[in-house]
């Protein structure tokens, strides 16, 4: 039985919303009940953006994530804001390329992921979000990587299909970091 309640947060432009949509789409492909809820309005204009994703075997009750099973923090304000909302033994993924601070809580599982550096190494600075998503999939086992790739195909269409291999690499690199480097 899965009941994943994820908060993804960062600056506008870090691909937070699209990462959330992709995961939601993948959940739908696997036949789960899913919802994606963005923050909107002036909050977004201020430069921070976040979305709530729920992937569950049961029908989704509230689409708002209050007790997160996982938080993906792409920048420092997001970490400060959402770390307290994680449930005990929940997951925290920190984009250590931009955040010079580790998790404060010791009752959760946390990973530092240098997502921007890895993205730069892969030659595409815009796929830091996919590195984080790869780490999330590996750490939770909630959904299959293949489902995310299938979702990506649908989202990208023909025109951007050439970007799929580098996105797959990013997912793999994120996953590797979780496999070998738990600091939780």
């Amino acid at each position: 039985m899965i009941n994943e309640r994820i908060v993804m947060a960062g600056f506008g432009g870090q691909g937070v919303m699209s990462m959330g949509q992709l995961l939601t789409y993948a959940g739908m492909i696997e036949g789960k009940n899913v919802s994606w809820l963005p923050s909107y309005g002036p909050e977004m204009r201020g430069g921070t953006a976040n979305c709530n994703v729920i992937i569950s075997d049961n029908p989704v009750a509230s689409p708002i994530v209050t007790d997160a099973t996982a938080v993906i923090a792409m920048n420092r304000p997001s970490l400060d804001k959402f770390e307290p909302s994680i449930v005990k033994n929940g997951l925290l993924l920190i984009n250590s390329s931009l955040i010079d601070k580790s998790a404060e809580r010791d009752d959760i599982v946390a990973y530092d992921i240098p997502a921007n550096e890895i993205a730069d190494e892969l030659g595409n600075s815009r796929i830091a979000n996919m590195v984080m998503l790869g780490a999330y999939l590996e750490a939770t086992g909630a959904l299959k990587k293949e489902s995310v790739l299938e979702a990506l195909k649908k989202v990208f269409g023909e025109r951007k299909a050439h970007l799929i291999p580098v996105n797959k690499d990013a997912l793999d690199r994120g996953a590797e970091l979780v496999k070998g480097n738990s600091c939780g």
Partner: peptide
């Protein structure tokens, strides 16, 4: 409301 308008579901 805005929540329903903005959220994505299958």
């Amino acid at each position: 409301d805005g929540m329903l308008g903005q959220m994505m579901e299958p």
